[in-house]
């Protein structure tokens, strides 16, 4: 039963990631693209956790944690760049 639920969830998160890519390509403004990237990394975390569940190992959680930290820094840097024109003043 868990295997079926896992496959359904992986399918749903993959479709979600594809929708984010659609928004990433379509735009229309720069903040929209940054928002799409932000959502995309959160979906990547979900996919990595699901991969870890499928393979029955906890090794991948470290990677998910790193993506969570780095993705946030990336989003903030890009938003700051859009607002100010530079990241570090």
């Amino acid at each position: 039963m868990i295997v079926i639920a896992l496959y359904i969830t992986i399918a749903m998160v993959t479709v979600a990631a594809l929708l984010n890519v659609y928004r990433l390509i379509k735009g229309p403004d720069a903040p929209d693209r940054v928002l799409a990237l932000d959502t995309l990394y959160i979906n990547a975390i979900a996919l990595i956790i699901l991969l870890g569940l499928t393979l029955g190992t906890r090794m991948y959680l470290e990677a998910a944690l790193l993506i969570a930290v780095m993705g946030f820094v990336g989003t903030v840097a890009m938003a700051k760049y859009l607002k100010r024109g530079s990241v570090i003043e």
């Binding site: 868990i2 639920a5 896992l6 359904i8 969830t9 992986i10 399918a11 749903m12 998160v13 479709v15 979600a16 990631a17 929708l19 984010n20 928004r23 928002l35 799409a36 959502t39 959160i42 979906n43 979900a46 699901l50």
Partner: peptide
């Protein structure tokens, strides 16, 4: 799992 997947999908649909 299903709830989580559904919410992630709905968030992306909203986006």
């Amino acid at each position: 799992l299903i709830i989580g997947g559904a919410f992630t999908l709905i968030g992306a649909i909203g986006l």
